[in-house]
Design a protein around this nucleic acid. Structure first.
Lengths: 179, 179
DNA sequence: CTACGGCTTAGAGCGCGCTCGAACGCAAAC
DNA sequence: GTTTGCGTTCGAGCGCGCTCTAAGCCGTAG
């Protein structure tokens, strides 16, 4: 299931190190090869989420989807693009309630564009902060791994009274806790 | 409550743009000015979490905390450092179950160091991937905000048949959905 | 004809990580 | 002495975002 969803593909591309132009991402994640219409399994595979989740999003009022003669969902290109957007926002941490709000604004007409932009900006700020937080944690963990002893070494050369220089691993490898 | 917890302070420092040396982070977040002992409110404030959560972590077996004559918790420096570590790991997305496992390893003795390192490495990889994911989303949202129309503009100069060049906003500002 | 796989619905259930409520203890302030 | 405030315990409750169950319909393969 979902062997090559968009985010996976995008990350694979990013793996090469190149910053990947805005346009490339745009083409990749926004206006990707979206067919005229798709069935639920195809959309699920494309987005890397389950059909269950797609139905849940629909029930949540995030998207409307037409049915065919058998009552089966038929996703048109616009619905897929919206779900693409929604999925990316979810993946970057925007809560469902905000997405509901955003979609309500979209459905309310163009006069809500300023508020939509405000929401997007706020979310962008949240993402930036999150990235910085993660960068901080990453540095700390990097440091911890390094000072733990490169590979399999017992890692604790100085077990003296917490000189606090090299052995910065809080859970001291000796006892559970001095207390 | 928690007006200046560690992560907030660290982010403020990072705000200046400087990459902030490993040592600085180390000193800041690992061996920070940890007193001999602290009460629950102080620890909560330091870590930016609630006393409720601290008790919860203790119940979850992540840390042992001594009591004073009144049955009140007394956090010694080691406990605080461990909680510092745990909080950073939680904040960077490591699930409780993994932390329980990690702590069990710590308590099991030095022979578990290799597995601990493996866990830390795996988590480091997870953080890196997450950062790349967020970077991707950030770029996409940046692009969307830009093409939406810098400020308050109606944003949609070309509403033609989805030329897909400038108006890359999936939820078309016109109707809820064509379907 | 029958079985199977995949879709439909409404609604229940779940895993996670807290978060809170209730009932109580103790110490300092009024 | 009583109130205020912070602590304690145990256990229940909650918000989120799915995730699954049950019962049923449909089209195709064998």
């Amino acid at each position: 299931m979902a062997t090559d969803d968009l985010m996976t593909r995008a990350l694979d591309m990013l793996g090469d190190g190149a910053p990947l132009s805005v346009e490339a991402i745009h083409r990749l994640a926004d206006v990707a090869d979206v067919p005229e219409s798709m069935v639920i399994a195809e959309v699920a595979d494309l987005l890397g989420i389950s059909p269950h989740t797609l139905r849940y999003y629909e029930r949540a009022g995030l998207v409307e989807v037409a049915r065919d003669g058998n009552g089966h969902r038929v996703y048109d290109a616009d619905a897929v693009r919206r779900l693409l957007f929604l999925t990316r926002m979810r993946l970057s941490g925007m809560p469902m309630r905000d997405l509901r709000r955003y979609i309500a604004l979209v459905d309310a007409g163009e006069h809500t564009v300023p508020e939509r932009l405000a929401m997007l900006s706020a979310h962008r700020d949240a993402i930036r902060r999150r990235i910085r937080e993660l960068g901080l944690s990453l540095t700390a963990i990097d440091h911890k791994i390094t000072t733990y002893g490169g590979a399999t070494a017992p890692a604790v050369q100085d077990l003296g009274p917490r000189t606090g220089t090299a052995g910065g691993h809080e859970p001291l490898p000796r006892a559970p806790q001095p207390g």
